[in-house]
Amino acid sequence: MPLPPTWQQFLDEAGGLSRFTGRFFSQGFKPRYEITELLRQCYIIGYKSLPLVGLTGFIMGLVLTMQLRPSLISYGAESQLPAMVGIAVVREIGPVITALIFAGKIGSSIGAELGSMKVTEQIDAMEVSGTNPFKYLVVTRVMAATLMLPVLVILSDAISLYGSYLGINIKGVISMDLYFKQVFDALSFDDFVPAFIKTYFFGFAVGMVGCFKGFNSSKGTEGVGRSANSAVVVSSVLIFILDLLAVQITDILGLN
């Protein structure tokens, strides 16, 4: 049964990505461990993304609050604003928006970096000098993305909530104490833990797709641009798919 070319391409991609992921698990946890490079990648991927993620998080919290405010006032439930923003940010908006920003920044940069290394034979050069480029380039980046995104999400959540606090204080008055008390009263472990766990998967997906696209970049500078671009597109879509899976799993586990 012949498949339409787009389908074949899609399946080819999916298969390639799966094999690449399998290779990550088969090689990633064996020595030698590239600790120095891992730390360097953590610094680049995590620390250097903080300003962007923090800024978007702050604006998101502020805007969300200002958008929700009128409708909550019409219900006479203005006092529920911290609780509502808190739950929205911690459960969904924080992880997903941060992951999308992360995919845009890190996914594309990994895709472009590895892509250009591939087409200029730098990856070959690494292999030739007796360094496993998969471990040195891919494993470190995927690990760094997996470990750093959750940290970024937590910081972004905190900044978002602070933005929301300022947002409430633009038109109303609430003390910092009361605000955070209301936020934390509204939150439970069931809100926090699944949202936190899924960020690891988001980070893993972004790192994995970025590396896959870069590592398998086709020759020429055009190939580099394409890998950067499709790294962002594919990882963004994957984030939403994982989010859908996460909500269903938490639902099945009765954690909602």
Binding site: Y43, V151, I154, F189, D191, F192, F196
Partner: peptide, 25 residues
């Protein structure tokens, strides 16, 4: 860079522990 990274990760960890405590209360 490692100092900055450590600061970054610790900040995240502290906020997480604090939130877990606040929720757990």
């Amino acid at each position: 860079n490692n100092v900055k990274l450590g600061f970054f990760v610790l900040a995240g960890l502290l906020i997480m522990i604090f939130s877990l405590y606040m929720i757990g209360k």
